[in-house]
Design a protein around this nucleic acid. Sequence first.
DNA 1: GTGAAAGCGCTAACAC
DNA 2: GTGTTAGCGCTTTCAC
Lengths: 357, 357
Amino acid sequence: MSIAPEKRFSPVPTMRDVAERAGVAPATVSNVISGRRQVRQELRDRVLAAVAATGYRPNQLASSLRRMRTDTVGIVVPDLTNPFFAALVHRLEDLAGEDGYQILLVGSNEDEAREADRLQTLLSRQIDGLIMAPARDEAAALAAHRGRLPPTVLMDRGFGHAEFDAVTADNTDAVRQGCRHLIGLGHCDIAFVVTSPALDNMRERIAGYRDALEAAGLGDRARVLAGGFDIEGCRAMIEQELLRAEPPTAIFAANYVATLGAVKAIRALDLDFPGEVSLFGFDDTDWMTVLRPYLSVVVQPVAAMADAVWGLLRQRLDDRQAPCRHLRLPCTLAVRESTQRPRVAPDRARMPIVVSS
Amino acid sequence: MSIAPEKRFSPVPTMRDVAERAGVAPATVSNVISGRRQVRQELRDRVLAAVAATGYRPNQLASSLRRMRTDTVGIVVPDLTNPFFAALVHRLEDLAGEDGYQILLVGSNEDEAREADRLQTLLSRQIDGLIMAPARDEAAALAAHRGRLPPTVLMDRGFGHAEFDAVTADNTDAVRQGCRHLIGLGHCDIAFVVTSPALDNMRERIAGYRDALEAAGLGDRARVLAGGFDIEGCRAMIEQELLRAEPPTAIFAANYVATLGAVKAIRALDLDFPGEVSLFGFDDTDWMTVLRPYLSVVVQPVAAMADAVWGLLRQRLDDRQAPCRHLRLPCTLAVRESTQRPRVAPDRARMPIVVSS
DNA sequence: GTGAAAGCGCTAACAC
DNA sequence: GTGTTAGCGCTTTCAC
């Protein structure tokens, strides 16, 4: 053994180390590992042996830099704590993983500034694709990067942009049907609770609400409340509404947060539920068929939506020129226990209802 | 204007483009942008102008390769759909973002093979840190990379490893207290439902259960059920238990999944709940104080746990030699409506109880 | 304080 | 098939 300065043992072996050990060119190692080109069996064996002996593990970073692709997709959602988005992310991570992509996850917390900031870093990481439920429809953060964005699919929100693929539920129709159900039950005073009427998806849901009321000649009874993006805000707003002289006989909540806010408000006032007030919620979860009363809700096709999003992204990855598409998936209604006939006869519905039980 | 072949307009400007335009060295651009070194005001201005003019945006990939750090942390959880993990991830993403890190998210779906596979890719991406709630305590996936792992913090599970920092709830004590509550109410037949007794956290919870029963002289009444990792599995197991000749008067569910499974089982059998059977759950969520009966549960300090995890990771990033620490955070009990006195007097508790209502 | 040059680890292009 | 070479875009010595 010579004492001459040999190449020191590198703490983490590189492809070159493997190549030297196997007595082949680095490119050959690369080809063995990636399988991109045929390599003679003998060399391949030597390479594999060298890989095993050195414990070599490829550095994706270097590979990505060279190949100009990262096999990474960014996902931006407003709130991971909301089961709707959690389910979407869960499914997307699944699909992405199957196709060899990893997920860079960002939660915007419904905050535009934060979203813009995080998006910037996401893009600087050279993500191959972007999936986003933007905090605001304008998606100013996106516009700022116009022309420099990777293939992008919007979901749930911001679908007004013609330059992006998008997936949404058929919001208007879902709410229209929900309202019909309530009206059919005899409800004339239905309050509709959204987070923010500034969001297109909420506007669509409001449209469904107004549609249905007008079709029933109840147009002048429409009341839309904006409770904000957190449960407590919605709760406060709804509580106040239920304390009015002529409270609604039913609440229709336009999303998960509003739904929870509504039940909390009803509980806080200790109302007989659904006796004194019915509730139609939005978004279905495990627990809704478990505690009482089981909630009647609009069910968004979450799995199908995630599938559609991923499908659009894959297609966009293959062909950046194809025209953008907006997929709108139908919702279903799960009518359960939280909606029932109002106590007051329809013709007396304008009379004040005593709120306490 | 010369027709000579000038450098073509590069579709995406690089630091070199900016440097040329500003008439400075690439290194200077780098220094302006990173702020790592002082740059004379005049040059700085020229650089900034060139950045604006070209619309240059740094390539983190190249930077990471050179700097040998990615400002990225991998998070592996068994199930994003479980609000406990969703909340953990949510909070961790928050903390990471504040510190300039991004999150590569992986859901293992409680599947070891998948976990190992995804972990491999995660590591090849040169993540700076790893946060993991391993599918199995052995965390074979981790062991396979022994010595080549970035700073790693385990949470909720796998905390038996002396070579990793870890954060868990005080499982044994939490369950012990929960059991005391049930026993105090007069319950002598309490079934304990875990997902899998192979997990250390479940074993700890079981230990708390046995402790409490033995302390009350009820050691021979202990019944531990393993329902598996999905709600339906737990439901089936619990349903069967409730149909025995001598059904338990109370169910103690050892995690979120088991809790939901328990309520489903109770509903499926149409039992008077909590009249005929009490339920003590595990993990607190928004909806538990909203529908009836409000569930009595063990509350894990999720936010504090995430904070602790992040804190440990940051410290480990700073000092890889420091001894590993296992932080164990106390839980609290939320006693609500799902637990009440059993209908049968304690001294008759061994008599069969009629199950139908 | 600034520039020149080397190189992070990998792969694509091109010879042979 | 396999080796050689030249970078991917950035940061970091090291001179000046």
